[in-house]
Nucleic acid binder design. Structure first.
Length: 841
RNA sequence: GCCGGAGUGGCGGAAUUGGUAGACGCAAGGGACUUAAAAUCCCUCGGUCAUCUUGGCUGUGCCGGUUCGAGUCCGGCCUUCGGCACCA
C-alpha cells in the first residue's frame, strides 16, 4: 500500500479539523500553569514574507511544545493596522486606506492559516478599529490627567517624504525609519509623552531583563544614556545674568579656559546686541565634522579660580542636552582642544596620568596638554619633529589633579565627589543626573491613525475630550490627495466641534497618534480583547501577563520594546496591571538572507512562501526554516535545503507506510529497560530514549531547533538501517511513534496524519510530550579515547561505568599503546571518567 | 571614536562545565536500479604525505600564553556585522 505524501490535502484536512474542534481556543479557567507566547504582530502590508514565516513558525513550535508539556498556552495574533502604506496606496490607487487594510488582513490571515499556525483567532486584535483605538485615546487622557502628556513647540524631526514628524527613536542614521529619506529639523508644536519621567525606572529595571539578549538590554541602557554630574553657575561679567553649564568632569574645572554655548541658547539673544556678531552666530554651520565658533565678546567668571574667560557660541554644543552650555577644558576634552587650537585659546593641564605624578618633568607641561610621548609612556620626553610640550590631543582619561588649589593631588574620582560637594556648599552648583532619552513626540500629521482626543477652544484653551465621548472616530469620508496638510485638517465636518467645557465653537486636534502607541499595549489587550467598558480586564491580565516568550526582529530593540516597557509602567501606575515589565523572555530572530543580502522586494531576491507551500506543503517549509539555522542567527536561504527537508519527511512517510502492518499491531506508549531484547533492538530503543532527551534539551536550553531536528534525522537514519532479528515490532513501533511525536511541533499536519494512520484516535495535540528513561538511555559501552601527551593514539570499546583503575588497565592493554610506551618513563596518567585516558611521558 | 556580537570544510551549521573538531543537512564525485531520465538506494567527501586498508603530520581568523590537554580560558592584534555617535 504505497501511498504518496500529499501534503496539500493533508494540511487542508487537519487545519479544518483543528478549527472545527476549536483546539486552539483557550480560557483563563485552567488548573494548568499558564504560558503566554507572543510574536510581534505584523503590519498588513499585503502578503506574508519569509521573515514573517520564520518569526511565526518559531512561535508556533514553542507554543505547540509548551502545550504538550502541559501548559495552558495563549498564542494570539493581530494586526498593527494603522500607518503610512495604507495612505500611500490610497493616493496611488484611489482605494480607501480602510478598504486596502482590511483586504490585506483577510488575505494574510488566510496565508497564516495555511501555515498551520495555532493561533486563537477569537482574540484577534486590529488596531485600526474604533474598538481598539478608543483605548489609545483613553490612555492618552489618563496620561494627560497624570501630567504625562504635554504640548510644546520644539525643533522636531521631519520626514519630507512622509510629510510627518518622527520620534527620536524613529530616526535611523539621520534617515526616516520607514522610507530612509533624510530627516530634517522643523519647528513645530506637538504632543509629547513624558517618557523621561520613567527614565530612571526604565534603566533600573533593565537589570531585571535576564531573559533578554544582553545586546538589546545594552542598547536600551545606552539609549536612555544616564550620566551623573553637576550644574555650575558661571557669573557673566558686566551683567546680572549667570551662565549655567552641565559637566560630568567637575574635576577639570580648574582647567576651564573658555565657555561654549549653543547658538540657539536664549542668552545669545539676550546678551549679544551687535548685529554683526549675531549674524555670524546664526551662520555657524551644522556640519558635525568642522568645529566652529564665534566670540560673543562676553566673559564669564570661573567660580573656583575667579578667572575671567571668554564666552563663545559654538556649533558643537547641543541646545537639547544638559543646559545648552558647557565649560571648555581644552586640555581634557578633544572637541574643546580642537576648538582652542583653531582660535588660539589657552590650554591648561589640570589632570595628569596617575603613573606620571611625581615624575621630575611633570612641571614642563603646565602650560600645555600632553605630548605624543606622555600619552604612551605617561612621562614626557623629547622626540624628533615634536617640540617639547607641544600638545597633540586632549588627555581625556581620569588621572590625578594638578594646579587645582586644595584639590591638587586628588584622583579624578575623589575630586569629582569633593568638588561637587564644595560647589553645593558655596551655592555655586548642584549635583544633577542627565539623560539622553528625550520625551516621545507622538503627533503625526497623517490621516490613517488614532485621532488625538483634544479640543482647542478660543476661550478655554486646550480641553480634553470627555471620556464618555470616546472614541473620537476617524471619519471614513476623507479625501487623500497626497498634497498639502493632513486630510483631517481640511475636513471641517471632523474638526468643527463644540468646546466640552463652555459649549462654544471649538476645533478638534487634527493630528493623529504615532502608530507605535498602538503597538505599545496590544499584548495586554489580547488578554481581554472584547471587553468594551475597560481597556483591560484586570483579572485576565493578571492571569496571563507577563508575556513569557516574545519573539520578533532586532529592529525593535529600542523603538517598540522601549515604548512597551514605558506603557506597561504607566498602565501599572494607572492601576490596571500589577507587573513592572511586560516581557520575561525575548528572542530576536535573525534575518532571512538570500544571495548575500536580506530578502526584500527592492533587492529582488524574495522567495514567496505561498509558492513553496503549494509545491511542498507548509510542513516542509516549517522544517527547513527551523533546521537551517538557530533562531537568533541569520538564515541563509537555500532552495536545495528545502528539497532536503522534503526528502526527510518523505523518508519517514514511506517507512511508516511500508511497515504499516507492524506499526499498528501494538499500541505502545511506554517502553523501557533493555532486558530480553536482541542487541539490535536494544540499540534502537536506547537511541530512541537518547533522542527524546536530546530533542527536549535542545528546545529547553535555548530553542535550538536545528539540533533538535538533527537528532530526529539521526534517529530516523538508524530506524531505516534497522535489521530485524526476531520479533522487534514493539521496539520499532515505539521508536517510530516517538519520531512522529517529537516532530509534531515542527510538522504538525504531517505528524497528525501519521499518528492517525498508526492507529491513534485522538489528535496528537492532546498527547503529552514524551519523557525519556535515564537507565535505558545510558550507553552500555563507551568508546574510550586513549591519548599520549594529549594526542589521540587509540580508541578502545569498554563497558560503561568502570572505575579509574579498570579504565587505565584497558588503556594500557591496547596493543598500539603498549608499543608506544614500551621502555619509557611515565610522568602521570590522567583519567576522565567514561571519556578518555591521557598518558603523559 | 565608544559599546556589543561574530570569525570552524565548497556551503548552512554541530561540539553542556577545557577532554575524539566537523554531528545533521546541502552541494560535489563514484556506483546500483532504469531503454533513458526523474525519484530512490549504496559508497566517498577538511588539507597533506604515505607501505592510499587499521597510519603519520597538520587543521576552528592571526601571534603569543596557561594546561597533561584549548574551537572553548587569558593577553595582544586582524577582519567583519550591528548599535550609538559632537550627550559635555
Amino acid at each position: 500500500m504505497e501511498e504518496k505524501y500529499n501534503a496539500l490535502e493533508i494540511e487542508k484536512n487537519w487545519q479544518d479539523r483543528w478549527s472545527r474542534e476549536e483546539l486552539f481556543t483557550i480560557k483563563e479557567n485552567s488548573d494548568l500553569p499558564k504560558f503566554y507566547c507572543l510574536e510581534m504582530f505584523p503590519y498588513p502590508s499585503g502578503r506574508i514574507h519569509m521573515g514573517h514565516v520564520r518569526n511565526y513558525v518559531i512561535g508556533d513550535v514553542i507554543t505547540r511544545y509548551k502545550r504538550m508539556q502541559g501548559f495552558n498556552v495563549m498564542h494570539p495574533m493581530g494586526w498593527d493596522a494603522f500607518g503610512m502604506p495604507a495612505e500611500n496606496a490610497a493616493i496611488k490607487h484611489g482605494v480607501h486606506p480602510s478598504k486596502w487594510t482590511f483586504e490585506n488582513i483577510s488575505y494574510m490571515k488566510e496565508q497564516l492559516k495555511r501555515m498551520g499556525l495555532s493561533y486563537d483567532w477569537n482574540r484577534e486584535v486590529t488596531t485600526c478599529t474604533p474598538e481598539y483605538y478608543k483605548w489609545n485615546q483613553w490612555f492618552f487622557l489618563k496620561m494627560y490627567e497624570r501630567g504625562l502628556v504635554y504640548r510644546k513647540a520644539s525643533s522636531v524631526n521631519w520626514c519630507p517624504s512622509c510629510e510627518t514628524v518622527l520620534a527620536n527613536e524613529q530616526v535611523i542614521d539621520e534617515g526616516c525609519w520607514r522610507c530612509d529619506n533624510k530627516v530634517v529639523q522643523k519647528e513645530l508644536e506637538q504632543w509629547f509623552f513624558k517618557i523621561t519621567e520613567y527614565a530612571e525606572e526604565l534603566l533600573k529595571d533593565a537589570d531585571t531583563l535576564s531573559g533578554w539578549p544582553e545586546k538589546v538590554v545594552t542598547m536600551q541602557r545606552n539609549w536612555i544614556g544616564r550620566s551623573e554630574g553637576v550644574e555650575v553657575d558661571f557669573k557673566i561679567i558686566d551683567s546680572d545674568k549667570k551662565l549655567r553649564i552641565f559637566t560630568t568632569r567637575q574635576d577639570t574645572l580648574y582647567g576651564a579656559t573658555f565657555m561654549s554655548i549653543a547658538k540657539g541658547h536664549p542668552l545669545v539673544s539676550e546678551l549679544v546686541k551687535d548685529e554683526k556678531t549675531l549674524k555670524a552666530i546664526n551662520a555657524l554651520s551644522d556640519d558635525p565634522e568642522e568645529k566652529e565658533g564665534v566670540n560673543t565678546g562676553f566673559y564669564a567668571e570661573n567660580p573656583l579660580t575667579g578667572d575671567q574667560i571668554p564666552i563663545y557660541a559654538a556649533n558643537f554644543v547641543l541646545m537639547e542636552y544638559g543646559t545648552g552650555a558647557v565649560m571648555a577644558v581644552p586640555a581634557h576634552d578633544q572637541r574643546d582642544f580642537e576648538f582652542a587650537k583653531k582660535y588660539a585659546l589657552p590650554i591648561k593641564t589640570v589632570i595628569m596620568p596617575a603613573k606620571s605624578v611625581g615624575a621630575p618633568l611633570a612641571g614642563a607641561l603646565t602650560t600645555g596638554a600632553l605630548t605624543a610621548d606622555t600619552l604612551t609612556t605617561g612621562a614626557p620626553a623629547q622626540e624628533e619633529g615634536h617640540p617639547q610640550g607641544e600638545p597633540l590631543q586632549a588627555f581625556e582619561d581620569y588621572g590625578v589633579l594638578v594646579d587645582s588649589s586644595q584639590f591638587s593631588n586628588l584622583s579624578s574620582e575623589e575630586a569629582r565627589a569633593k568638588i561637587a560637594v564644595h560647589l553645593e556648599n558655596k551655592g555655586m552648583g548642584k549635583k544633577v543626573v542627565n539623560y539622553k532619552l528625550r520625551d516621545w513626540g507622538i503627533s503625526r500629521q497623517r490621516y490613517w491613525g488614532t485621532p488625538i482626543p483634544m479640543v482647542y477652544c478660543p476661550s478655554c484653551g486646550i480641553v480634553p475630550v470627555p471620556e464618555d465621548e470616546l472614541p473620537v472616530v476617524l471619519p471614513q469620508d476623507a479625501v487623500l490627495t497626497g498634497t498639502g496638510t493632513s486630510p483631517l485638517a481640511e475636513m471641517e465636518s471632523f474638526h468643527k466641534t463644540r468646546c466640552p467645557a463652555c459649549g462654544g465653537d471649538a476645533k478638534r486636534e487634527t493630528d493623529t497618534m504615532d502608530t507605535f502607541v498602538d503597538s505599545s499595549w496590544y499584548f495586554l489587550r489580547y488578554c481581554s480583547p472584547r471587553s468594551d467598558d475597560t481597556p483591560l480586564d484586570t483579572e485576565a491580565v493578571d492571569y496571563w501577563m507577563p508575556v513569557d516568550q516574545y519573539i520578533g526582529g532586532i529592529e525593535h530593540a529600542v523603538l517598540h520594546l522601549l515604548y512597551s516597557r514605558f506603557f506597561t509602567k504607566v498602565i501599572r501606575d494607572i492601576g490596571l496591571v500589577k507587573i513592572d515589565e511586560p516581557f520575561v523572555s525575548l528572542l530576536t530572530q535573525g534575518m532571512v538572507i538570500k544571495d548575500g543580502s536580506k530578502m526584500s522586494k527592492s533587492k529582488g531576491n524574495v522567495v514567496d512562501p505561498d509558492f513553496l507551500i503549494k509545491k511542498y506543503g507548509t510542513d516542509t517549509l516549517r522544517i527547513f526554516c527551523m533546521f537551517a539555522a538557530p533562531p537568533e542567527r541569520d538564515l541563509e536561504w537555500s532552495d536545495q535545503g528545502v528539497e532536503g527537508a522534503w526528502r526527510f519527511l518523505n523518508r519517514i512517510w514511506t517507512f511508516i507506510h511500508k511497515n504499516h502492518a507492524v506499526l499498528t499491531k501494538k499500541s505502545i506508549n511506554e517502553l523501557k529497560g533493555l532486558t530480553g531484547l536482541t542487541t539490535e533492538a536494544a540499540k534502537l530503543l536506547r537511541k530512541t530514549h537518547q533522542t527524546i532527551e536530546k530533542v527536549t534539551n535542545s528546545i529547553e536550553r535555548d530553542y535550538h531547533f536545528n539540533t533538535a531536528i538533527a537528532a530526529l534525522m539521526e534517529l530516523i537514519n538508524e530506524i531505516l538501517s534497522f535489521k530485524s532479528s526476531g520479533d522487534d515490532s514493539a521496539v520499532l513501533s515505539f521508536s517510530i511513534k516517538h519520531v512522529v511525536l517529537l516532530i509534531s511541533p515542527f510538522a504538525p499536519h504531517f505528524a497528525e496524519e501519521l499518528w492517525k494512520e498508526m492507529g491513534e484516535e485522538k489528535s496528537i495535540l492532546h498527547k503529552e510530550w514524551p519523557a525519556w528513561d535515564e537507565e535505558t538511555a545510558k550507553d552500555e559501552e563507551i568508546e574510550l579515547v586513549v591519548q599520549i601527551n594529549g594526542k589521540l593514539r587509540a580508541k578502545v570499546m569498554v563497558p560503561a561505568g568502570l572505575d579509574d583503575e579498570a579504565i587505565k588497565e584497558k588503556a594500557f592493554s591496547d596493543l598500539k599503546i603498549k608499543e608506544q610506551i614500551e621502555g619509557k618513563q611515565l610522568k602521570k596518567v590522567i583519567v576522565v571518567k567514561s571519556k578518555l585516558v591521557n598518558i603523559v611521558m
